[in-house]
Amino acid sequence: MVRILATVAGLGALAVGLVALGARWLPVSGHPSLIVAAASPYLAVAAPVAMLLLMLGRRWILTLVAVALTVALMWVHVPRYLGSSGPDVAAVDLRVLTANLGMGQADPAAFVALAGAAADVVAVQEMTQEAADGLAAAGMDTAFPHRVIVPAPMASGIGIWSRHPIVHSGRVDGYALPMVGSRIRIPGVRVDTTVLSVHLAAPWPMPIGAWQSDLALFPDTLREVGRSAGAGAVIVAGDFNATADMAPFRRLLDQGYGDAGPDAGAGLVRTYPGRGMRPPLLGIDHILTKNCSAASAATVVVPGADHRGLLATLRVPVDMTAS
């Protein structure tokens, strides 16, 4: 009887593990597939459970299948915690913070204190006019004298603050929500660095169409930004409303970009939901990099906001043309 129960439970766990692996490559066509892809790191735990149960049931061929599935899932998830080293070139450290301000509800004084102590460049999303005024009153413009901001109601506001000079800036239109870009002159770096603050459409609880459209269009924007940057570093920071386990997000990396969290060995870098004492479940805020590398990454609490911020130290090469 024990063997039968173990076999049935093991088969169920094996099925869940197969779903966890397959969901990473399936198209996200609706809310059910979206939810399964987002949950896949948690569902992956079912694979080793299946292996143990099928061993208990003495189903050796099925056990080997479960072992293979466990190895495949480890191959997918473990590298996120190991990181990858960037090129060994002379570089300048640049601390980048991205934060969704929760429709302007983040505490201005707390956010300025956080950013002022930890960052050189700050990308924000969901910045209302009231939030922009509050940040200015709390000293944001003093700590970061260079800025390009577009405050707007609800979730539409966006902005970038920098300690270093912004030599060019502009909006990126054509998406559900506005984005802004800038060229930042970092002391000691030969070619100016391009920084984008982005906010892709949310796929939940509203219809998923706008999210699909944004993610389908964004590779073209990344390709064009990379072409325009030339040998300069590109940093794309913001709320992507997508996890690294969703195939449409990973297609963004095909343009030669890295994802700072996994590249730095920070794991899932879960940022949402950020309110309350419980840890977040999903890593939907990202810092993408091109022509630079991530040395470290971590989430930070943003009081009042419904996301945690993502803070990364990036290594920006002094002279990419020489590497």
Rank of each mutant, 00 (worst) to 15 (best):
L5C: 12
T7M: 14
A15R: 10
L18S: 13
V19A: 11
S29Q: 13
L34S: 02
I35D: 00
A44Y: 01
A46Q: 04
L56D: 05
R59T: 12
V65D: 04
G83F: 11
V89R: 11
D93N: 15
L94P: 02
V96R: 01
L97A: 11
A99Q: 06
A99D: 07
D107Q: 14
P108W: 04
F111V: 13
V112W: 00
A115Y: 04
A117W: 07
E126I: 10
E126G: 07
T128C: 06
D133N: 13
A137I: 08
T142E: 14
V150C: 05
A152K: 08
M154E: 13
I158D: 00
H164T: 14
P165H: 06
I166P: 02
G170Q: 11
V172S: 03
G174F: 09
A176V: 09
L177V: 07
S182N: 07
D192K: 04
T194D: 06
V195G: 03
A216V: 06
R227I: 12
V236D: 01
Q255R: 11
Q255W: 01
G265P: 09
V269A: 08
Y272Q: 03
G274M: 05
P279L: 07
P280S: 09
L282F: 15
I284S: 00
H286S: 05
T289Y: 01
A294Y: 05
S296G: 10
A297P: 03
V302P: 00
G304M: 10
A305Q: 04
R308F: 08
A312T: 15
L314V: 14
A322S: 15
